[in-house]
Design a protein around this nucleic acid. Structure first.
Ligand SMILES: [Mn+2]
Ligand SMILES: [Mn+2]
Ligand SMILES: [Zn+2]
Ligand SMILES: [Zn+2]
Lengths: 133, 133
DNA sequence: AATAAACTAGTAATAATTACTGTTATTATA
DNA sequence: TATAATAACAGTAATTATTACTAGTTTATT
């Protein structure tokens, strides 16, 4: 029952995450919030990102290349990463049907419990595609 | 055309990976190969794991929790991680159909190129399920 | 056997993240 | 509104995973 106190820094981080669609890293969040709070510490950013994730106000997006990004959009939605530039992009389609089908298929002959799955897409992002052609 | 020279250490790592079904981490590989080659360096393990992955003799399995595991089974197959104990387990079913369907669905209204996707399952492994009940 | 270069052990360096500590900001309450 | 309790902070140190470096060793070729 430890109470939660408001903090300007946490709020700034939250607002920033929600305003972005490009899934910033902890470092990117730090770089931005530093403009408003020049003394903010990187530890504070990490602590609050974890806090927000734990409280359902943000999502942690661990990518296939090992990098970790954050998302202010907590609606479940699939992600895509560009093999060229590493950008993380939202994919706007509903994969629920496929997801459920996969879970069901996976559960066959499996003695454990399949609770769900995360599908991560990769390829070439629109920008890199244009540049390349 | 840099030639490749055989090395006992690399071979030991390769053999060990192939003999395992539990997807060891770099550290776990190190711990084991150290028994046969007490002087082997952790750097050598990392270098060779990367080598094997680059040469199609192993697969790198970056998990949702940030940990990185390795797999001597290079046949494409889906993975599952237990939320309780963290174990990585192979799932023996063919998800190709769903995967293709997902790629197609994802490609709709997407200006980039969807090359593929990685689906990672999570839940409770058989062992943890038994213990818990 | 001699040579060249790939590979190794040992160690140092880097990157990402977490832990610690004394100080500050926030909230509840007198 | 002042006081008190403590959540949260800044600054820094520590940890973890991984990569880079270098002098010496092993492997393959002549
Ligand atoms: Mn997103
Ligand atoms: Mn496997
Ligand atoms: Zn791109
Ligand atoms: Zn388990």
């Amino acid at each position: 029952m430890a109470q939660i106190k408001h903090s300007r820094q946490r709020e700034a981080i939250r607002i920033f995450l929600m305003s972005r669609k490009d899934h910033p890293t902890a470092e990117a969040v730090y770089a931005h919030v530093k403009e408003e709070y020049p003394n903010i510490s990187l530890g504070t950013v990490y602590r609050n990102l974890t806090f927000l994730v734990d409280n359902g106000e943000a999502i942690k997006v661990p990518c296939d290349d090992g990098s970790v990004h954050f998302d202010g959009n907590v609606e479940p939605h699939p992600h895509f990463q560009c093999r060229k530039c590493g950008a993380i992009i939202d994919l706007d389609f509903d994969g629920t049907k496929c997801e459920n089908a996969l879970n069901k298929a996976a559960a066959t002959d499996f003695e454990g419990i399949i609770e769900g799955n995360v599908t991560f897409f990769y390829g070439i992002c629109p920008e890199c595609r244009r540049e390349n052609s």
